[in-house]
Amino acid sequence: MSGGAVLILGARSDIGLAIAQAFAAEGHAIQLAARDPDTLEAARNDLALRHGVDVSLHAFDALDYDSHEAFLDALPVLPEIAVCTVGFMGEQTESETDMNAARLVMRSNFEGPASILGLIANRFEARGNGIIVGISSVAGDRGRATNYVYGSAKAGFTAWLAGLRNRLAGSGVHVLTVKPGFVATAMTEGMDLPERLTAQPQAVGRAVLRAVNARRNVIYVKPVWWLVMLVIRSIPEAIFKKMRI
């Protein structure tokens, strides 16, 4: 019952771990990659005990671009599926006044993920198969005053994934873009999120598994977000710029 290996980049995140659980339950070996892999010991044991799959831990720093080739070389096997859940929201107000803070948000959500996934895409293309999953955000669908630094980086990542999908169509490599909407995670803890629009990390895990199996291109985890973002995108700029949402 063993499927190909699934690499989770940014595996300490709630979404990353939930995706790992969903694929492990289907018999996939799991590679967990994060900055301090030692902190993932318990998660590794849990995945292995629950699902009887091989789980390995790997040190990975999304912002240390020069290390990315070596990181891939050191993996026990080039994975069948690579999932990037790397991301960092930061504080919008801080990003407005401190360019270093803004750059960290931009690099964490766009440059870092694009760097590692770009290298993986080339290796997948050479092999002739593979699936790349990028966790982007609805925040990238339109810039808003409350989080446009984060949103713009996610917008870049979304466009990057779309272009990659376009480039690799017909090569045997598939690219899935995931826009989770609100998710109850460590990142959003303490925020007052509307219940109907908020998904649990486990639901994101299951949605990603389904979307991979169905070779979907772009998904919103809760379908209602498609409608919400359609409305938000259709508001004319002259009106939108005066709104506070």
Binding site: A42, A43, D46, L49, H51
Partner: peptide, 28 residues
């Protein structure tokens, strides 16, 4: 606190965090 931490296949002793559900133990 929902992780299974260790299982000894000889003695059948499972070490787990307190939030793990019994049903998950059975499933595993």
């Amino acid at each position: 606190f929902n992780r299974m931490l260790d299982f000894d296949t000889k003695t059948g002793v499972l070490t787990a965090e307190a939030g793990v559900l019994l049903g998950d133990v059975i499933a595993a």
